[in-house]
Write a protein that binds this DNA or RNA. Structure first.
Lengths: 140, 140
DNA sequence: GAGGCTTGTGTTCTGATATAACAAAGATAT
DNA sequence: ATATCTTTGTTATATCAGAACACAAGCCTC
């Protein structure tokens, strides 16, 4: 019914990415935590990326292809962690160590979709950002 | 099981607010839609509010007292619409008319709390931002 | 292959959002 | 009255995001 796994477990880079999208994807894949746009920019200074625009453009492309999610509450970005498209993206954000897990909650998603539908709302997408303390930090 | 109602139905201003918190609360109460910090600032120019800091401080105070929520996906703020404290704040954001409803989904909240707990995560709070088309806009 | 189209890229500049740091005024308690 | 706490005022700066324009490479069509 629910499962959590660390983002970024070394994964295959998807096909069909442009040069800059590959660079940004690799930067995100190499980080255990979500990265901010300007953090990505810093990391890619070596690769010749100089301007924020370059990073934001690549992030836009990756987001539109479903490979990346933005955590609005952190102004940060993470690789997408699941297979097919979901209506609800759910994230566990640890306020202690900053780690972020993407959580899959099939049953809850269905309930949300139902409740939203009952309110006569045509849902396009949803994002659930959960803040708290992860199990590692909770055990001190 | 679920209910939606327009935010901002003319409501009583809570007690215990500072002067600037009252000003910001009134501005939010007067708006059908969420307001950005700088929009609030513009509205309060007449009242002698000149600096962003003033607005952000008041918003912080109101948030910490539970009277206001921030919609991170919009960088905007709305009055809190429900009674007691909830673990999950849910918002219906219309991408067509920008209206925002705060939705109460007791059953779904309980499921979320359970699923998060099952992942050994100590949850402090959660925010569900649902984007789509509201019933008014859906009917063209 | 000349011209037109699209896509990706590079660069500069500007806009939008948010906070740090310090000063001063007002309230409250002892 | 004076020490302390909260709130407010002000300036300056940090952070996040996108507009606008130019250029180059690939790919059509004719």
């Amino acid at each position: 019914m629910s499962s959590a796994s660390h983002l970024n477990g070394s994964r295959e880079r998807p096909a069909g990415l442009s040069k800059n999208e590959k660079l940004v994807w690799d930067a995100l894949a190499a980080s255990p935590d979500p990265l901010k746009a300007y953090e990505i920019l810093d990391q890619l200074k070596d690769c010749g990326v100089r301007a924020p625009m370059t990073v934001y453009r690549a992030l836009d492309g990756l987001e539109s292809k479903g490979h990346v999610h933005k955590l609005e509450g952190l102004n940060a970005f993470v690789l997408c962690n699941h297979e097919g498209p979901h209506m609800v993206q759910s994230f566990l954000v640890c306020e202690s160590c900053s780690a972020v897990d993407e959580l899959t909650m099939i049953a809850v998603e269905a309930d949300i979709v139902d409740a939203v539908h009952a309110a006569n709302f045509q849902m396009n997408n949803a994002r659930l950002e959960i803040k708290g303390v992860c199990k590692d930090c909770d055990a001190h």
